[in-house]
């Protein structure tokens, strides 16, 4: 090892270290570049993207009506069996008997958010909600009934 290469290696190495130090040092003196989000505090301003797959929901309008006919296509398309539909027979206003959902059960713990149920629903009853705070102490709470209490089928949806 010649003295010249020894020294040039030394200085080059030292310089490269200084370049690195400059980067980190500049970050230390510019706290405005901090990107941390103060999560629970910013709950009010926190807005997820509209397509964010938080959980599957059954869309209800203000009259407590939904579009689910209980056809069971979502149940069939779900790869993990996270949707269970319990249907009942119901007499409509016109006196005809038709199938309707009793319970649309959604096992959040099994869901992989593939989106097949939402995509395959023929009457566009399902959608993804933005709720992402799913932590619970009891696993049973992750089994949700999607249709609200007393909700009925929206008119005109077959």
């Amino acid at each position: 090892m010649g003295l010249k290469s020894y020294l040039s290696g030394l200085f080059k190495g030292f310089y490269s270290l200084l370049v690195g130090l400059r980067v980190t040092n500049s970050y230390f003196f510019h706290p405005s570049r901090i990107v941390t989000q103060q999560y629970p505090e910013n709950r009010k301003t926190l807005k997820m993207f509209e397509r964010f797959k938080g959980e599957v929901i059954l869309v209800h309008n203000e009259n407590n009506e939904h579009r689910c006919t209980g056809c069971g296509i979502c149940e069939m398309n779900c790869p993990n069996g996270s949707i269970e539909i319990i249907s009942k027979m119901e007499t409509g206003e016109d006196g005809k008997k038709r199938k309707a959902i009793d319970k649309h059960i959604y096992h959040l713990s099994m869901c992989t958010f593939c989106g097949l149920c939402v995509k395959s629903c023929p009457s566009k009853a399902l959608a993804f909600g933005n709720e992402f705070e799913h932590a619970v102490f009891d696993r049973a709470k992750l089994d949700k009934v999607l249709n609200k209490e007393g909700s009925v089928l929206m008119k005109g949806v077959e």
Partner: peptide
């Protein structure tokens, strides 16, 4: 705190 500021966090 120093390492947090360097690492763009709080």
């Amino acid at each position: 705190k120093v390492c947090a500021f360097i690492q763009v966090r709080l």
